[in-house]
Amino acid sequence: MSEMFFDAAPNATRVAPARPLPRDYPATKPGDVYLFGTCVVDLFYPEAGLDAIRLLEREGVRVHFPDQQSCCGQPAYTSGYTDEARAVARAQLALFERDYPLVVPSGSCAGMFRHHYPALFADDPVLLARAQALAERTFELAEFLLEVCRVQWRDQGPPVAVALHTSCSARREMNTHLHVRALLDRLDNVERREHDHESECCGFGGTFCVRMPEISGAMVANKVESLERSGAARMVTADGGCLMNISGAMEKRAAGMPSEHLASFLWRRTNPAAVSQ
């Protein structure tokens, strides 16, 4: 019988990677960081990117924003266009050479740097070493503010109930839901409202939302309904893709609530000048 297996190497069996240990965070706050803005924030939510810079600067961190940055490559990668993703990823890899932490205001892009770049460059020892080094120092914005900057804030805004949506890759690759909850819980006047099926995908999925628009549409419709049922007055999320998907669907349906990127919400709540605006 086993003729069919003759050319299969027994050592080709993969074992699941060990469960990651809790991440070790630097004991001291670094003086400099890179910000990777992400393609969606760049063109659709640039204010959120600027608010991220402001939040970091207020913690006494110098923010570097290499002007040649563009996209992490995720859209092509998840669509199966691996060579194309690698070409774009390679261009980014060249921009963040110093050992500054890379802070990303999007959990899924942070996850792309942290988990998928090493896979993308697995066959190129030189680039792999650089990808691994970059992965090691990549942080999602909320994670960086919470665990590295250890922010101490005073909430300056009026009482408000917010619902938090966390992108699936941010949740599963970066634990962003835990970081953002912890940050929001530090704001005295902010009440975080859970919504049903909170951990369920909003239906964005990169190109999934245009490849399978009906299925994606059903998912985002349910997400909007859940958010509405929560009774929250606003929705915040740390991911530009989900934000575009959910807010775009809310606007189309004339439903839901104002929604914004976490960075903008945090900046406004903790900055007296912004609150009074």
């Binding site: 910000l35 803005g37 924030v41 760049d42 063109l43 659709f44 939510y45 640039p46 204010e47 990117g49 600027l50 810079i53 923010v63 570097h64 924003f65 002007d67 939302c209 245009v210 490849r211 628009p213 009906e214 994606s216 549409g217 985002v220 419709a221 575009m244 998907n245 775009g248 669907a249 606007e251 189309k252």
Partner: peptide, 26 residues
């Protein structure tokens, strides 16, 4: 705009990109 506007309002790009804002700010 293709399948996007089946479920969403048309996307509206910002008036200036983060690249531009960062150029001013940094």
């Amino acid at each position: 705009l293709g399948p996007w506007t089946l479920n969403h309002a048309p996307p509206r790009p910002a008036s200036r990109s983060l690249h531009e804002l960062a150029r001013e700010h940094l």
